[in-house]
């Protein structure tokens, strides 16, 4: 029951924050780890060596080196980069 209440509150918070904030004036790309299959296509196309595979074999975008060119978004077969 306690878990159910926490999850309902969490859902409401997520929904609220999802639409209440001001849209960022810059772009940042992240990876949905649940959908990433570790194929490495994003590493092939990244012109700044900003993507690597972690010990779980999932891709990680290094925000310090990413220049938001979105090449990885285009080639991702699982549409896991957002």
């Amino acid at each position: 029951m306690r878990c159910k209440i926490i999850l309902i509150i969490l859902s409401l918070l997520v929904m609220l924050s999802g639409f209440a904030c001001k849209k960022a004036v810059w772009v940042e790309y992240k990876i949905d780890r649940n959908s990433c299959n570790g194929c490495g296509e994003c590493i092939r196309v990244c012109p700044n060596d900003a993507v690597y595979l972690d010990s779980d074999g999932k891709a990680v975008i290094d925000q310090t080196k990413c220049t938001q060119c979105a090449k990885c978004v285009v080639v991702c077969p699982n549409k896991a980069i957002y």
């Binding site: 997520v14 001001k22 849209k23 960022a24 940042e28 992240k30 957002y82």
Partner: peptide, 17 residues
Amino acid sequence: FMNDICSDDQVKQVWLV
């Protein structure tokens, strides 16, 4: 559903990424 928001250290403005 995933939501990504961020802010600076002083939390002057919360941005929706």
